[in-house]
Amino acid sequence: MNEALTLLSFGDQGWGDTIALGVLVTVSLSLATLPFGLVLGFVIALAKNSSEPSLKLAANIYTTIFRGLPELLTLFLVYFGVQIGLQQLVKLAGLEIYIEVNSFVAGMVALAFVFSSYASEAFLSAFKGIPQGQYEGGYALGLSRFQTMTLIILPQLIRLALPALGNLWLILLKDTALVSTIGLSDLLRETSIAARVTKEPFLFFGVACLIYLVLAMISSSAFTRIERWSKRGEVQR
């Protein structure tokens, strides 16, 4: 027991600081992905909600692809695909440079693709929950289409989509573990290294799982608060 605590302590003897850095990378990767995923997901939901069939079809192809591919494969496709694509471009330009894609950025892009395709479904079902009269009311007040969307529809939309988005955030947090396979020093990679060096895999992977659980707990309590905040205008029952 003492041995385990020494291994997990901060400082020279333990792996505590390395693991803490890993947690920081995991959290910052998911936080960095979130805004891109949300905006992209909202735009795709708008496209799916439009009356134009070609736009709908284009958006549906996007979600079919990124919801059907394993997250790990999406990650590899982005990581190696972008690398090869850039290399070809550089070759065309006549340069001799070796390009390596940053695994943080590749992870961000791949996770944003996956997150946005699921988020678009969440937004779309929220769109269906807003009655047509809300739009008509906005136009009747002389608001432009943009103003109606941002001032009237969006606040209600966020409230309706929040529970689903909370789940998607938890999934995103878990999916960041996959980025450890392309060499990003996140929580899982740091604990794997610690496990290999110290030959205590059960301890370190157990700790990794527990840290993920703690992150999930913090997120769900944060989401409960956000949901309560978003419902502050509703009648208390």
Binding site: L170, D175, L188, F202, L203, F205, G206, A216
Partner: peptide
């Protein structure tokens, strides 16, 4: 449901090797 599947797989495949 709260931990990544990858971490669970590592825990079982590598972790049980400790025992």
């Amino acid at each position: 449901r709260g931990t990544p599947l990858l971490a669970q797989t590592f825990l079982i495949y590598y972790g049980f090797g400790s025992f």
